[in-house]
Design a protein around this nucleic acid. Structure first.
Lengths: 69, 69
DNA sequence: TTGTGACTTATAGTCCGTA
DNA sequence: GTACGGACTATAAGTCACA
């Protein structure tokens, strides 16, 4: 349903981050995005664009589809 | 790379449409968007948001991930 | 029947603060 | 270290006239 994709993305990102014991700020730096934006994405509040998903996936050396599954 | 997702989405939509011998205008009506917007998406020119992808997928009774694969 | 450019309105995305 | 708000800029959402 509406918002599922962004919630899934947020869950995946948070898991990735916690597995590596990174702070949101540290992960934000890796992803090249702003700290507060990062938090919003993790909380599933952000309705990202396809290009944004691609950028994040690339920074994590994974595929966009993985982040959305 | 950058833009792959939207190009894939466009390709999938066009294929879906042609398989059913629909015009862009007819498909646009199904999706509840304007004809010219639809065309831009099919051409891979539009950097959609996750919610937009979800809406299109729902209108076609398929999954967002299918449209992006 | 589809593509393109110009256009307005909505919202993605950045950056600053406070708690 | 995280959440949340406000103010701001860039761009997506969506339409239209014309080729």
């Amino acid at each position: 349903m509406e918002g599922d994709l962004q919630r899934t993305l947020g869950r995946n990102l948070r898991q990735y981050r916690l597995e590596r014991s990174l702070s949101q700020e540290q992960l934000a730096e890796v992803l090249g995005v702003h700290r507060t934006y990062m938090g919003g994405v993790e909380r599933g509040e952000r309705n990202l664009t396809l290009k944004s998903v691609e950028r994040i996936a690339a920074a994590l050396s994974t595929s966009p589809l993985d982040l959305l599954s």
